[in-house]
Amino acid sequence: MQRVNMIMAESPGLITICLLGYLLSAECTVFLDHENANKILNRPKRYNSGKLEEFVQGNLERECMEEKCSFEEAREVFENTERTTEFWKQYVDGDQCESNPCLNGGSCKDDINSYECWCPFGFEGKNCELDVTCNIKNGRCEQFCKNSADNKVVCSCTEGYRLAENQKSCEPAVPFPCGRVSVSQTSKLTRAETVFPDVDYVNSTEAETILDNITQSTQSFNDFTRVVGGEDAKPGQFPWQVVLNGKVDAFCGGSIVNEKWIVTAAHCVETGVKITVVAGEHNIEETEHTEQKRNVIRIIPHHNYNAAINKYNHDIALLELDEPLVLNSYVTPICIADKEYTNIFLKFGSGYVSGWGRVFHKGRSALVLQYLRVPLVDRATCLRSTKFTIYNNMFCAGFHEGGRDSCQGDSGGPHVTEVEGTSFLTGIISWGEECAMKGKYGIYTKVSRYVNWIKEKTKLT
């Protein structure tokens, strides 16, 4: 034993070699072989497995989906700052455009905790909710729209109204504003409101030439003092309507412009014939205590009207009353817009006519005020429907199939267009061939041609 100890002390290297040989010859039971080890760690190889990531292109799944990435790591994937920024906006807080917040056709661009709407022409605001041009839906104005110097929408209202708090709607500024039905039992019968379409306001006024200088022999019209197929109006439903009495009662109609003036057809009036105007009328054979009678003290036909040349060209006249009318729910003026808007309103496509005229061709006159909704007829169809001249200051309205029309005794009465609950004068009943005849239409004086003249002559002093 002493000898062994001496050998170990003198030859430590020998001992180490012996131990190493023993270990190498022993069977290893701690580690699995290569094949079995792979069965336990069965993990798919990654895209760049075996390579240094710093030297390969980034992978979106590896960089940002398996674990949260930084902007720089995302930049490695896209290799483009702009594309990385677009991805980053949604990656950080989701897609803010998912709810489609942009209105009126706006395009949404996502941002971090926010979004941006790219608005089409005519709109602005956070969600493109603000109209900035009158060309689109009248700028959301209830009545009139004008573009300011910086191309912003400025709404306005006709006389007797003021802008509401929203700067879009119009509200009454006087007790009985024009064009409004205020009798409670008839307010439910107000005709369907007309909503502004998209309009090209630059070209809204037709490029028409008034044929002022045409000389033409007097034409022989049949029954051209021209509501057939209409309905009984309720008291106060058309408070701007008046009836004219002269040699015979209810020979023509008219509309209240203001307390002192009536507008009617020029062919209705004769110099030297006494005319009485009755406002607030409903049943011409009954006294309903809503009527107001006034005498006409002055007749002003349009300066281009000449019955000797043509009885229905420039067929418009103004009547001055001896005493002002007292405005109330049964006696209310009709609204008159400017030339541009009167023309736009007419193009809405349908209007209402009213009167006490004959209820059928050569038949009896109506006792109760009649009204009828009539569609506008395109000019080409209008011209083809008659052998008589249709001037540019006239328009056609009615039904091709016949059966409904204005008729004798309705002449001078109103053709009105309702705009968001307020009625505007767009025409004056003038003439036609018979009444409600198939293929024939009622012919009306186009008020847009005469609004400046009306307003100039009827100013209240």
Rank of each mutant, 00 (worst) to 15 (best):
Asn5Glu: 07
Ile7Met: 14
Ile7Ala: 15
Ile7Gly: 14
Met8Val: 08
Glu10Phe: 10
Ser11Arg: 12
Ser11Lys: 15
Ser11Asp: 03
Gly13Cys: 13
Gly13Thr: 12
Leu14Arg: 03
Leu14Cys: 07
Thr16Glu: 04
Leu19Asn: 02
Tyr22Glu: 02
Leu23Asn: 01
Ala26Thr: 12
Glu27Ser: 14
Thr29Trp: 06
Phe31Ala: 09
Leu32Met: 14
Leu32Cys: 05
His34Ile: 10
Glu35Arg: 08
Glu35Val: 13
Asn36Glu: 11
Ala37Leu: 05
Asn38Trp: 08
Lys39Arg: 13
Lys39Cys: 04
Asn42Leu: 07
Pro44Leu: 10
Lys45Glu: 14
Arg46Tyr: 13
Asn48Pro: 14
Asn48Phe: 05
Gly50His: 10
Gly50Ser: 07
Leu52His: 15
Glu53Arg: 06
Phe55Gly: 08
Phe55Val: 13
Gly58His: 12
Asn59Gln: 14
Glu61Asp: 06
Glu61Pro: 12
Arg62Asn: 10
Arg62Ser: 13
Glu66Arg: 05
Glu67Thr: 12
Glu76Asn: 13
Phe78Gly: 14
Thr81Lys: 14
Thr81Met: 07
Glu82Asp: 15
Arg83Asn: 15
Thr84Leu: 06
Thr84Met: 04
Thr84Ala: 14
Glu86Asp: 09
Trp88Tyr: 07
Lys89Tyr: 05
Tyr91Phe: 06
Tyr91His: 15
Gly94Asn: 09
Gly94Ile: 07
Asp95Cys: 04
Gln96Met: 14
Glu98Val: 08
Ser99Gly: 12
Cys102Asn: 00
Leu103Tyr: 11
Gly105Trp: 04
Gly106Asn: 02
Gly106Cys: 03
Ser107Ala: 11
Lys109Glu: 07
Lys109Cys: 04
Asp111Ala: 13
Ile112His: 15
Asn113Phe: 04
Asn113Gln: 13
Tyr115Ile: 03
Tyr115Pro: 03
Glu116Gly: 13
Glu116His: 11
Cys117Arg: 02
Trp118Ser: 13
Trp118Asn: 13
Cys119His: 01
Cys119Ala: 02
Phe123Thr: 08
Phe123Gly: 03
Glu124Trp: 09
Gly125Phe: 01
Lys126Asp: 12
Asn127Phe: 14
Leu130Ile: 12
Thr133Cys: 04
Ile136Met: 15
Lys137Tyr: 06
Arg140Trp: 12
Arg140Val: 11
Cys141Asn: 00
Glu142Met: 09
Glu142Asn: 05
Gln143Asn: 00
Phe144Leu: 05
Cys145Lys: 02
Asn147Arg: 13
Asn147Leu: 09
Ser148Val: 09
Ser148Glu: 10
Lys152Trp: 06
Lys152Ala: 11
Val153Tyr: 15
Val154Gly: 06
Cys155Ser: 01
Cys157Glu: 00
Thr158Pro: 04
Thr158Gln: 11
Gly160Ala: 02
Arg162Tyr: 11
Leu163Thr: 05
Leu163Ile: 07
Ala164Met: 09
Glu165Ala: 06
Gln167Glu: 06
Gln167Lys: 05
Gln167Gly: 06
Ser169Tyr: 06
Cys170Gln: 00
Cys170Ile: 01
Pro172Met: 05
Val174Cys: 04
Pro175Ser: 10
Phe176Tyr: 12
Pro177Asp: 00
Cys178Gln: 02
Cys178Met: 00
Cys178Val: 00
Cys178Pro: 01
Arg180Trp: 04
Val183Ala: 13
Gln185Asp: 13
Thr186Asp: 13
Leu189Phe: 14
Arg191Gln: 08
Glu193Ser: 14
Thr194Gly: 12
Val195Ser: 13
Val195Asp: 12
Phe196Glu: 13
Asp198Thr: 13
Tyr201Asn: 11
Asn203Leu: 08
Glu208Cys: 07
Thr209Val: 11
Thr209Ser: 14
Ile214Thr: 14
Ser217Cys: 06
Thr218Ile: 08
Gln219Cys: 05
Asp223Met: 11
Phe224Val: 10
Arg226Cys: 05
Arg226Ile: 11
Gly229Thr: 06
Gly229Ile: 13
Gly229Leu: 13
Glu231Val: 09
Glu231Thr: 08
Asp232Tyr: 13
Lys234Ile: 13
Gln237Asn: 06
Pro239Asp: 01
Trp240Val: 00
Val243Ala: 13
Leu244Pro: 01
Asn245Ile: 03
Asn245Thr: 04
Gly246Ser: 08
Asp249Ile: 00
Ala250Cys: 06
Phe251Asn: 06
Phe251Lys: 04
Cys252Val: 01
Cys252Phe: 00
Gly254Gln: 00
Gly254Lys: 00
Ser255Tyr: 02
Ser255Leu: 04
Asn258Gln: 02
Asn258Cys: 01
Glu259Met: 05
Trp261Tyr: 07
Ile262Asp: 00
Ile262Thr: 01
Thr264Asp: 00
Thr264His: 01
Ala265Met: 02
His267Arg: 05
Cys268Ser: 01
Glu270Gln: 08
Glu270Gly: 07
Thr271Trp: 06
Thr271His: 03
Val273Asp: 02
Ile275Lys: 00
Val277Glu: 01
Glu281Val: 11
Glu281Asn: 07
His282Glu: 03
His282Asn: 13
Asn283Arg: 09
Ile284Ser: 08
Ile284Asp: 06
Glu288Arg: 06
His289Tyr: 06
His289Val: 14
Asn295Gly: 05
Val296Trp: 01
Ile297Gly: 02
Ile297Leu: 08
Arg298Met: 03
Ile300Asp: 02
His302Trp: 08
His303Phe: 10
His303Thr: 11
Tyr305Glu: 02
Asn306Gln: 08
Ala307Cys: 04
Ala307Gln: 13
Ala308Asp: 11
Ile309Gln: 12
Asn310Asp: 10
Asn310Thr: 08
Lys311Trp: 04
Lys311Tyr: 05
Lys311Asp: 03
Lys311Gln: 05
Asn313Thr: 11
Asn313Gln: 11
Ile316Phe: 01
Ala317Asn: 00
Leu319Gly: 02
Leu319Thr: 01
Glu323Ile: 06
Val326Leu: 11
Ser329Leu: 04
Ser329Ala: 11
Val331His: 00
Pro333Lys: 04
Ile334Gln: 00
Cys335Asp: 01
Ile336His: 00
Ile336Leu: 13
Ala337Leu: 01
Lys339Trp: 09
Tyr341Cys: 03
Thr342Tyr: 02
Phe345Met: 09
Phe345Ser: 00
Phe345Cys: 02
Phe348Asn: 15
Phe348Val: 15
Gly351Thr: 02
Tyr352Leu: 10
Val353Thr: 11
Ser365Asp: 12
Ser365Arg: 12
Leu367Val: 13
Leu367Glu: 14
Val368Lys: 11
Val368Asp: 05
Val368Cys: 06
Gln370Leu: 03
Val374Pro: 05
Val377Leu: 12
Arg379Trp: 07
Arg379Glu: 08
Arg379Thr: 14
Ala380Val: 08
Leu383Phe: 12
Leu383Glu: 10
Ser385Thr: 13
Thr386Ala: 11
Thr386Phe: 10
Thr386Leu: 10
Lys387Gly: 08
Lys387Ala: 11
Phe388Trp: 12
Phe388Pro: 07
Phe388Lys: 14
Ile390Asp: 09
Tyr391Thr: 08
Asn393Ile: 02
Cys396Ala: 01
Ala397Thr: 06
Gly398Met: 05
Gly398Tyr: 04
Phe399Tyr: 13
Phe399Ala: 05
Phe399Trp: 15
Gly402His: 05
Gly402Leu: 14
Gly402Trp: 15
Gly403Cys: 08
Arg404Ala: 10
Asp405Asn: 15
Gly409Val: 05
Gly409Cys: 10
Asp410Val: 13
Ser411Leu: 11
Pro414Met: 13
His415Ser: 02
Thr417Asp: 03
Thr417Met: 05
Thr417Tyr: 02
Val419Lys: 05
Gly421Ser: 05
Gly421Met: 05
Thr422Leu: 05
Thr422Gln: 03
Phe424Thr: 01
Phe424Ala: 01
Leu425Tyr: 02
Thr426Gln: 02
Thr426Trp: 01
Gly427Cys: 01
Ile429Tyr: 11
Ile429Lys: 14
Ser430Gly: 09
Ser430Cys: 05
Trp431His: 13
Gly432Gln: 06
Cys435Lys: 04
Lys438Leu: 15
Gly439Gln: 12
Lys440Tyr: 07
Tyr441Gly: 02
Gly442Pro: 04
Ile443Lys: 04
Tyr444Arg: 00
Tyr444Asn: 02
Thr445Lys: 00
Lys446Thr: 04
Val447Tyr: 00
Val447Glu: 00
Val447Asp: 00
Val447Gln: 00
Ser448Thr: 06
Tyr450Glu: 00
Val451Trp: 03
Val451Glu: 03
Asn452Lys: 10
Ile454Cys: 01
Lys455Val: 06
Glu456Lys: 06
Glu456Met: 09
Lys457Gln: 05
Lys457Ser: 14
Thr458Gly: 03
Lys459Leu: 09
Leu460Asp: 12
Leu460Lys: 13
Thr461Ser: 15
Thr461Asn: 15
Thr461Leu: 10
